[in-house]
Nucleic acid binder design. Structure first.
Length: 266
DNA sequence: TCCCAGGTGTCGC
DNA sequence: GCGACACATGGG
C-alpha cells in the first residue's frame, strides 16, 4: 500500500530515539503498530507500507495530518537551529502505544539507546506475543528476576511494579490521556523509576502531549551551548526555558534539538 | 580501569 | 529545596 506522505522524514522519525521497536534492513523498517507487524519504506512524497494496517492508521501513527509549519517556523527563524531544519525536516512525533512508551522510558533512565533497543528486543522474545511488545499483564505476571535476566538491571522492580499497577488499574492510561499536562505529569511521576525527564518522555511519546519538553544530557548540553553561552544551567531551568520559548510545540522542537545534537548537525 | 548512557531514589543539610 | 552518591549493564 502507498500512503501519501509530504513533509515527512521516515528515517529521522524512526531513528530519533522516540521509539525503540524498529529495525532497518536496506531501506525498509520493520516493527509493529498497535500490535500488528508492519514494514515501512519511503520514496519521494509517499510511504510504502506493508502489513495488515489501513492508511488511516498509518497517517494517525506518524502524525501525518499535522501541519508542521509552526514547528518548522521556529527552526527557520532561529539561526542556531537552521542546521537541524535542513537535516531533519519532516521529522514527526509518533503516536505510539502508551503502555509501551511508559515501559520503554522507565528502562531508558541512565541507559543508552543501543541497550534500550536490546532490552526491548529481549522483552518481546521472552514475554511478547506474535513479536509485539508484551502487555502490562504479561510483565506483571513475570518475576523481577526474569526482567533482570533480560538486562533491565536495577530498573527491573520499577517496571514490574508499574506493570502490576497498570494491569490492575487499566483505566489509568485513559485518565492520563484525558488529563491536562500538569495533572498528567503528577500522575506519571507517581510510578517508580519515573522522574521529571522520563515523565516528559512518556507524556510526549506515549500520550502526544506536545508541551512536554524532556531534558536529558543531550538537551542540557545543546541548550547550554546555543542559548546560555556554554554556562551550566540546571535541568529545571532548561525545562522551563524550552516550554516558555516553544510553548505548545516544545516537544516537537525538542525532538529536532535532540536528534540534531546526537547526529552532530547542531 | 574509568567514563558514559534519553536519570531516579535516597539521604543529609 | 539542592547536592552527593549508589545503582545494573555493556561499550568505548
Amino acid at each position: 500500500m502507498i500512503v501519501r506522505a509530504e513533509h515527512f522524514n521516515l528515517e529521522a522519525t524512526l531513528e530519533s530515539g522516540q521509539v525503540f521497536g524498529f529495525t532497518k534492513a536496506g531501506a525498509v523498517y520493520s516493527g509493529h503498530v498497535r500490535g500488528v507487524p508492519v514494514t515501512f519504506s519511503q520514496t519521494t512524497g509517499s510511504l510504502k507500507v506493508g502489513g495488515r494496517i489501513g492508511a488511516r492508521a498509518v497517517r494517525e501513527y506518524f502524525d501525518l495530518d499535522r501541519d508542521l509549519g509552526p514547528v518548522h517556523a521556529f527552526l527557520k527563524n532561529d539561526p542556531a537551529l537552521v542546521p537541524a531544519l535542513k537535516a531533519l525536516k519532516g521529522l514527526r512525533l509518533i503516536r505510539q502505544d502508551s503502555w509501551e512508551a511508559l515501559a520503554c522510558f522507565i528502562i531508558s533512565s541512565n541507559n543508552n539507546v543501543k541497550r534500550i533497543q536490546g532490552i526491548h528486543r529481549h522483552l518481546i522474545a521472552r514475554l511478547g506475543q506474535n513479536g509485539a511488545f508484551p502487555t502490562a499483564a504479561a510483565i506483571a505476571r513475570t518475576h523481577e528476576r526474569t526482567l533482570r535476566e533480560l538486562g533491565l538491571g536495577y530498573r527491573a522492580p520499577f517496571l514490574q511494579r508499574t506493570a502490576k499497577f497498570i494491569s490492575t488499574n487499566p483505566h489509568t492510561l485513559e485518565m492520563i490521556r484525558r488529563a491536562p499536562y500538569a495533572e498528567a505529569v503528577e500522575r506519571v511521576l507517581a510510578f517508580p523509576g519515573i522522574g521529571p525527564k522520563v515523565a516528559d518522555c512518556v507524556l510526549l511519546y506515549g500520550f502526544h502531549k506536545l508541551e512536554a519538553f524532556p531534558v536529558d544530557v543531550w538537551i542540557q548540553r545543546i541548550v547550554r551551548k546555543l542559548y546560555f553561552k556554554g554556562r551550566a544551567v540546571s535541568e529545571r531551568r532548561t525545562h522551563d526555558f524550552g516550554q516558555k520559548r516553544w510553548g505548545a510545540h516544545a516537544g516537537y522542537v525538542q525532538q529536532y534539538l535532540f536528534h540534531g545534537a546526537r547526529t552532530g548537525v547542531l
